[in-house]
């Protein structure tokens, strides 16, 4: 199983390494704008949950960025599938669907971790340093695992690039804004909180923020992320088989 996983992972990492000089600036743009607009300009004097808004915001951006970059593996798979037809090379190879998904998910997690490092660097430039303890990284990895698994599953189901961007618009963008990235969920009405409780990013933001600010470890959120991730991962393996027409 390992040979298939490492082959898939190696390919993604080789591509990522080649594009890294362009990727790093692109990973920086959105967080930088959020930091300037929401954190620096608007929220300089604002306190949220007893923390300066900038300190509240950066763990949220970590959650959001790790989500979007892990999910971005879907675009890579789509390009490989519909444009370069590389996916056929993987389908024809003697590797299991499980090892294929593992390789892609690991690549998604790697992208997510690299993008988080960019956010942490930007945060440091804005004078905010977080506690980068094991709970922080565990939450980041679980969040990336959830969205990379979802990305692989959806990439197998879509029929074109257009479908993929539509899914991003309907799933990722709303979650990025409503999952506790920019504001505390507790400020919303109870009915809204109940709905948002089902979003994995809500739990990722909670777990990452608590760990980064040395607050109580939110085990419930870790557990929910793990369960959702495993469900998405299982669906992804199933969808790879279904991708054979």
């Amino acid at each position: 199983m390992l040979h298939g996983m490492t082959a898939i992972y190696t390919r993604e990492i080789l591509l990522l390494r080649r594009r890294l000089p362009k990727q790093i600036p692109s990973w920086s743009v959105s967080p930088l704008l959020y930091l300037i607009a929401f954190g620096y300009a608007m929220g300089r004097e604002v306190m949220v949950d007893g923390q300066p808004y900038m300190t509240f915001l950066i763990p949220g951006l970590v959650a959001m960025s790790s989500m979007t970059q892990a999910f971005a593996i879907a675009s890579e798979i789509n390009v490989a599938r519909f444009y370069w037809h590389i996916f056929e090379e993987f389908q024809a190879a003697p590797i299991s669907n499980l090892s294929y998904v593992l390789g892609e998910v690991m690549a998604g997690v790697t992208r997510a971790i690299l993008s988080v490092l960019v956010i942490l660097l930007l945060g440091a430039l804005f004078g905010v340093t977080l506690s980068l303890n094991p709970y922080f990284w565990l939450a980041v990895i679980l969040n990336a695992f959830v969205f990379a698994s979802l990305a692989v599953a959806l990439a197998m189901l879509v029929k074109s690039h257009a479908d993929q961007s539509m899914l991003t618009s309907f799933i990722i963008t709303p979650m990025a804004f409503l999952g506790g990235t920019f504001f505390p969920i507790a400020k919303l009405p109870i009915w809204a909180q109940k709905i948002l409780y089902f979003l994995p990013l809500t739990h990722a933001a909670t777990a990452i923020r608590s760990a980064a600010l040395n607050l109580r470890v939110e085990w419930m959120s870790y557990g929910i992320l793990l369960i959702i991730g495993m469900v998405f991962f299982y669906i992804a393996v199933f969808c790879v088989e279904k991708a054979k027409d």
């Binding site: 080789l14 080649r18 037809h85 590389i86």
Partner: peptide, 19 residues
């Protein structure tokens, strides 16, 4: 269905690992 952004040897290495 080659990886256009990779080199000739990288394409072959990935294939070798798959097999």
């Amino acid at each position: 269905n080659l990886d256009q952004e990779l080199t000739v040897s990288e394409n072959l290495k990935i294939h070798g690992r798959l097999y």
